[in-house]
Amino acid sequence: SEFERVGGIKTIRVDVRLVAATNSDLKKEIAAGTFREDLYYRLNVVPIRLPPLRERAEDVPLLVPHFIEKFNARLKKSVKGVEPETERLLASHPWPGNIRELENVIERAVLFCDRERIAPEHLPPEVQNASALPRAQQASSSLEPTSVDGLKEQVKAAMSRLERELILKALEQTHANVTHAARLLKISRKGLQLKMKELGLREDRSD
């Protein structure tokens, strides 16, 4: 390939191969006037469509062991795999965030896994929802009638217990390093410090 710099007079020869990726429909972008048609035809030599993860659920069981191995090494864990029900939930999730979302889910699961294999409870609620709804319906049928204010207090207390458990687990896994724990919980260090103060957790932690 040859080109000249803008304002230049010397022809420069290069031997490169350009790979471009997008998650937009470029033909629609061209029609809307937001993408240059000439650039599209320069790039569109050998188009390769990579389907989203939701269209290739058979890839999920292949990717999960890779991510488990990756985060075992990073978090110094020894998780060996996933339970059958966990595998079913992972395969049935639509993965709107594609592989990045799957990677984040497995990182979280490895962090909180306290056994050899990842169980459904180690997955975030949006992945568990296929089995969580029947449990919630069963639990709601056994609850005593309560006021709206009473229900709000129950939810608030449950959220506080969950937040406390997650923070303590993250601090345990990072050897009480607040900065690393905040990174695992995907919140800012300041946000974690404020939450710890709110929950009455002392910050006699190393960084």
Rank of each mutant, 00 (worst) to 15 (best):
E4A: 11
V6T: 00
G7P: 11
G8Q: 09
K10E: 14
K10V: 15
T11N: 05
V14C: 04
V16S: 02
R17P: 02
L18S: 05
T22D: 02
S24G: 12
D25H: 12
L26K: 09
K28M: 07
A31H: 11
E37T: 06
E37R: 07
D38W: 09
D38A: 09
Y41M: 01
Y41W: 08
Y41T: 05
V45I: 06
P47S: 02
R49D: 08
L50N: 03
E58Y: 13
E58K: 13
D59E: 14
D59S: 07
D59M: 03
D59H: 05
L63P: 04
P65C: 14
H66I: 07
H66V: 15
F67T: 06
E69Y: 07
A73Q: 08
R74A: 14
L75E: 03
K76C: 07
V79E: 01
K80Y: 01
E83D: 14
L90S: 02
A91W: 08
G97K: 07
L102M: 04
L102Q: 11
E103L: 09
N104V: 15
V105W: 04
V105L: 06
R108I: 12
A109K: 04
F112Q: 01
D114S: 14
R115H: 13
I118P: 00
P120A: 15
E121I: 14
H122C: 13
H122Q: 11
L133G: 12
R135V: 01
A136K: 08
Q137A: 13
Q137H: 11
A139R: 08
S141Y: 10
E144A: 10
P145V: 03
V148C: 09
L151R: 08
L151I: 07
V155F: 07
V155I: 13
K156H: 03
A157G: 12
A158E: 05
M159F: 07
L162I: 10
R164K: 10
L168C: 06
L168P: 01
K169G: 08
E172T: 06
A176D: 14
H180A: 15
R183D: 10
L184S: 05
K186Y: 01
S188G: 15
G191W: 00
L192Q: 03
M196E: 13
K197G: 01
K197Y: 06
G200A: 04
L201T: 01
L201F: 00
R205G: 00
